[in-house]
């Protein structure tokens, strides 16, 4: 039985597939980056349909916002035209088709879309849904899992972001404060 949200889901997936082909075929990097931002926005819409409102929120802000700006800033420095490859591209295509065929074969054993009996819904998650309201007292289950039950994970992720920020600073040589101190000494 097809419901309205399933139709929206299918339409958005089709849209994403078309955008992915566009990205693969396009040679102008400026167009590639802009289409990538659009792709992120469409996937954010898809996440909303799939009930992941928090994820949709993040993807819309990150993918269509910051990520596009950073890639465009890079293009400003490295140029926007991709050199046409000299080697034939049959081999990558073959590799992709074979890998894809194996992955599709693997999905045949997967639980169907939306199946409430799927293994993923049997363990841990029911507990979060049932008791997080009383234990944590926060209505948004995603927030209580993110910040409290899985606080260690999130601390790790925050440290990864911190490290990435430090890495960018080191690569681009903009850690002003410490360089000046070295000069004085």
């Amino acid at each position: 039985m097809l419901e309205m949200t399933d139709l929206v889901d299918l339409a958005l997936l089709l849209f994403l597939a078309v955008l992915a082909i566009t990205i693969a075929k396009q040679r102008n990097l400026f167009v590639v980056v802009i289409v990538m931002g659009f792709y992120s926005l469409v996937s954010a819409a898809l996440f909303t349909v799939l009930d992941a409102v928090d994820v949709a929120f993040t993807e819309a802000a990150v993918g269509a916002g910051i990520s596009t700006v950073i890639m465009l800033a890079t293009l400003l420095m490295v140029g926007t035209e991709e050199k046409t490859p000299s080697q034939p591209r049959i081999l990558p295509l073959l590799a992709v088709v074979v890998t894809g065929a194996f992955l599709v074969f693997g999905t045949l054993d997967m639980p169907h879309y939306g199946d409430p009996q799927a293994p993923i819904h049997q363990h841990v998650a029911p507990r979060y849904i049932e008791v997080s309201g009383d234990e944590i007292g926060v209505p948004n289950i995603v927030t209580s899992v993110l910040a409290s039950y899985r606080g260690y994970d999130t601390l790790g992720e925050t440290v990864v972001i911190f490290t990435a920020g430090v890495a960018v600073l080191m690569l681009m040589g903009q850690a002003l404060r410490f360089r000046q101190r070295d000069g004085d000494a």
Partner: peptide
């Protein structure tokens, strides 16, 4: 299920941080 949402939410932000690197 809220659990995949949590994992992916953080993965998106970590993804942009690594893209910046």
């Amino acid at each position: 299920n809220p659990l995949p949402h949590v994992l992916i939410l953080t993965a998106i932000v970590v993804g942009i941080a690594t893209t910046a690197v």
